[in-house]
Each structure stands twice: as structure tokens, then as C-alpha cells.
Amino acid sequence: MFARGWSPSDTQRRAFSLVVGLLLVLNPFLAQQFDLGGPRYEYTAAPVEPAGDSLDFAEDTRTPYGTDLRGVDCYLLDRPWTCYLEERAAVNGSVTVTTERGYDRPSAEFVHLEGGFYRRTATDIEDTGRVEYERVDAQTVLSAVSVTRARAPDPFQRAVREGTATSRHEYEAARFVRDGSNYYIVGPVGSDRGIDDRWTLSFVGTVLGLLVLRRGYRQSLVGDE
């Protein structure tokens, strides 16, 4: 608490002006370094247990949805038409495609189709591509595609420990994470886009900082006279 009647000296005023001005001038660097006012992303971890051909989720848990799942296609996303085509192919056990330009192999080893999980095996023979489907149980999928908590991104690790986590780093795809003998599905559930036009505000702060520094410098010249 300041004593009654106290007022800062000229030296203190000059020092205050110089410090505030310097902070304002440096604010773009500080904003960049610490991502001040930038977007934040929320992640959640939901315990899962293999149950034959499916996965059981704990009741009243928030699970990621509407995102890719690393290593498994057609699971969390709204099912695109390609998933329905693959269901027809899985009924026959395989699909063969002939093309002169080649084709893109499936990005994930596993796919979730009506009734359960399948492992996809793709082979190329000259201008023919063949994809075979093998029915597998949920435990096989978890064992193959999950990563240990220590190897997961930092916000995913914190989500496993605490249930949810917020980070300035964006990870678009969900993942299965293994922690000891327990499995979790971890992924994004929301975001905060941060302050609009934060770089414009930062530029204005820099200009104000230069003006404050100029005022403090003039005060120091007057004080030295």
C-alpha cells in the first residue's frame, strides 16, 4: 500500500514509461513466442475396451467424432460413399481394379464396416490392383494401431491422465492410445479460434510503444538538464 501523499518521482516516471514502451514494442515477438491470443484446441480421452467385433465405451464419456482415426477408416467420420462400396467388396472378400494410371492404396490398414473391423491387404500386379478384406476382432485392431502414452503427442498424454486437455497445437486425427493395459480413444472435440485480428492489435501496440518510448526518452533528456 502506498503512503498517503506519495507520488512517483521523475526518475520513476521515466523508468515506467521506458519499461511499458519496451514491452509494447516487443509485443509482436512475445505474441509469436508464446502464441498469445492464438487458437486453442481441446482434446478428450475416452476409455475403450475390446468386445469381440466392437468397442465398448464407458458410459457418460465424451468421445471425439467427425474426425479421422489414425489407422482405421470409416469409424469416427460420417460415412462417405466409399465406405458403402467397401462393404460390398468385403462381402466378396476382395475387389480387383484394373487401371492404366495406377491407384492410391488405402491409407489405413484397417477399415470399420457394417458388422465389424477388417484388415485390408493391397497388392499390385502390373496394371491391376487388388484389395483383400480379412475380418478381425477389435483387440487385433487396438494392438496394431495404438501408440503408448509416452509416444503420443503431449496434449494426448495429458488428456489420458486428466480426461481433457487444451493445447495451441492442432492434431486433426484421433488415435488409440495405450496406457498400461488400458486403451483410450483420444481426439479433438472443440476449439477456440482466439482473438480476431490479433496481429492488427499487436501492430497498434507497437506504434503506441514507440510513442511511449519517445516520451520517456524526452523526459530523460529534460531530467538530465
Rank of each mutant, 00 (worst) to 15 (best):
D127N: 15
N92C: 14
L18V: 02
G37I: 01
R135C: 00
L22C: 15
P47S: 07
A46F: 01
S146L: 06
E132C: 10
A122G: 13
S146K: 00
F29P: 05
Y118F: 03
P50H: 12
R70C: 14
V25N: 05
V25Y: 03
R119V: 01
R119H: 10
S17P: 05
F110P: 00
T99Q: 12
S54E: 13
V19P: 02
S107N: 15
D78I: 12
V141T: 05
L113Y: 03
S107V: 14
Q139I: 04
L26E: 04
V20S: 08
P39E: 11
G71A: 03
T99V: 04
S143A: 15
D127L: 14
V147K: 08
T98L: 13
R130Y: 09
L22Y: 02
R120L: 06
V136I: 06
P50D: 07
E132L: 08
E134H: 09
V48G: 02
G102N: 08
Q139M: 09
Q32G: 11
S107F: 14
F16Y: 15
S146M: 07
V25D: 03
P47C: 07
Y75W: 06
Y133C: 02
L113V: 06
E86R: 04
E59H: 13
Y84N: 10
R13F: 06
A138S: 06
D73P: 05
D124G: 12
L36C: 03
G52S: 06
Y65D: 12
L18N: 09
S143R: 15
R105F: 11
P28K: 05
V131L: 08
T128F: 09
E49H: 08
S54N: 12
A144Y: 14
T61C: 11
A45D: 04
G102M: 08
L55D: 00
G116A: 09
D53H: 05
S107G: 12
E49P: 11
V95Y: 02
T44D: 02
G102C: 05
R62H: 11
P80Y: 03
C83M: 08
D78V: 10
L113R: 00
E134T: 03
L36W: 03
Y41V: 04
S17H: 12
R79A: 08
T128G: 08
V19Q: 13
P64R: 01
G71Y: 00
A122F: 10
F57C: 04
G116F: 00
T63C: 05
V25P: 03
V97Q: 07
T67L: 08
V97T: 08
T123D: 12
V111Q: 00
V48Y: 04
C74G: 03
T128V: 10
E49N: 15
T82D: 14
P50R: 01
L69K: 00
Q33I: 10
R149S: 04
L85D: 10
D60G: 12
G116P: 02
E134L: 07
V147W: 08
L77N: 11
